[in-house]
Design a protein around this nucleic acid. Structure first.
Lengths: 151, 151
DNA sequence: CTAAGATAGACAACATCGTTGTCCATATAG
DNA sequence: CTATATGGACAACGATGTTGTCTATCTTAG
């Protein structure tokens, strides 16, 4: 393997390792049906992307795709849609109690996983790793068109 | 944002940053049609996963899915399939000159990108980052069912 | 105030890529 | 030789993305 090829591969694998561990734990803590994407979407909604159109913009997908995702999450009971009194075109996406719980649990598990990594690597080396990644990635974007982007 | 949530997000973003830069460069060096997945598949083929079934096993997808991917890459001119004289069930997947060139260019660009990262972070810190990732990820597996896995 | 344009959301048609199930030809093991 | 395992192809299906179109509603320019 060429030297440069390993870096992206390891980044992807590390991401998968964390996300797989997350969902294994989430399944045992009351959220067996959650997919990797769902957590990201709930995060986006909680951070203000509370309509199909704005969610689409935040995630970098079409509003139709965002709408379908919301529908799925609604079916799973993680969000509901309520009419916006200030703009009757809009339906505001709101996290349900279950949705809030999913986010809380996810944060919980992510913190545990990070602690596990800190124990394995040493806290300083983990901080260095995060610093390095922070330096090499854009500030706040989080595009979520992963399926389409990759394939 | 909770502390632990940032790590997986940065890992994913870093991966995207590298892969997007790769394909921007590849497009300018004679491979405008390549998708992120293609490079991984060509790598797998070059490393010995030279049939639909074995490619499927290597990538962690069904042999049918692997077969479709091979068909796509064949259509793009990156691989051909030749009958295996030793086993008339098999069709060996072989990289074309174009496929070999794509791999060579990819390695080239990845090395350049890694050099860029080393310049930005310092060579030592980049080595540390790779060491840390190597420590936290499994040895050699590389599952490629990203679209289905994520969504 | 009204007319023009922008925006939100729904619906439909389609593409891509994964899945499972089935089938046939061919290898391999008992 | 026969039973089982394997490689590859074909078909049907599901999930998720896309674009295009449509209506309703908001916003802005004149």
């Amino acid at each position: 393997m060429s030297n440069g090829f390993e870096l992206p591969l390891r980044l992807l694998m590390a991401f998968r390792v964390l996300i797989d561990a997350l969902h294994e734990e989430l399944a045992e803590r009351g959220h067996p049906g959650m997919r990797p994407m769902h957590g990201f979407v709930l995060q986006a909604v909680a951070r203000g992307a509370d309509s199909a159109a704005s969610l689409g913009r935040t995630l970098g997908v079409s509003k139709q795709a965002a709408g379908k995702t919301i529908e799925t999450l609604e079916g799973l009971g993680y969000v509901t849609r309520v009419p916006d009194p200030a703009d009757s075109r809009r339906k505001t996406v709101v996290l349900t109690d279950l949705g809030v719980d999913a986010l809380r649990r996810s944060a919980e598990v992510f913190d545990e996983l990070r602690t596990r990594w800190a124990a394995e690597l040493g806290a300083g080396r983990l901080d260095d790793l995060e610093d390095a990644l922070r330096r090499m990635t854009p500030g706040d974007l989080f595009r979520l068109d992963v399926p389409g982007w990759f394939g």
